[in-house]
């Protein structure tokens, strides 16, 4: 029996709790989408998407734990890397548009 099957309360296991927590992180992500859409500057958008990306990494990792599929952590790891790439790429682009690129 893995840890996610451990009961928390009546009829609620730790896995259920983690899924709800992942949903909570997703709701926070929807909230942060406000800043990504409104801006007003491009840097604000990149920042919001970067924070969203960190949030998504946590969602993916929690999903991996809650569904009891530890290999799903690979996806979170890939995402953590590419989120960083996205942040530095876009932030560099907003400054140097066509220059260093």
């Amino acid at each position: 029996m893995s840890l996610v099957d451990a009961p928390l309360a009546a009829g609620v296991t730790l896995g259920d709790f983690l899924l709800v927590a992942a949903a909570g992180f997703a709701v926070l992500a929807v909230g942060m989408l406000y800043r990504a859409v409104v801006g007003p500057t491009m840097q604000d958008r990149v920042l919001a998407v970067n924070v969203l990306g960190t949030n998504t990494v946590v969602i993916l990792a929690i999903l991996g734990a809650a569904l009891d599929e530890p290999t799903f952590l690979d996806i979170a790891l890939v995402y953590a890397l590419l989120n960083f790439l996205m942040a530095i790429a876009i932030s560099k682009f907003t400054v140097e548009r066509g220059g260093v690129l």
Binding site: A29, A36, G53, L60, I75, I90
Partner: peptide
């Protein structure tokens, strides 16, 4: 802005597929 928000879109899709 569309490109940046499209990055966020792929975040959601990856989580959904997972």
């Amino acid at each position: 802005a569309a490109v940046i928000i499209f990055g966020a879109y792929s975040l959601g899709m990856a989580a959904l597929y997972t």
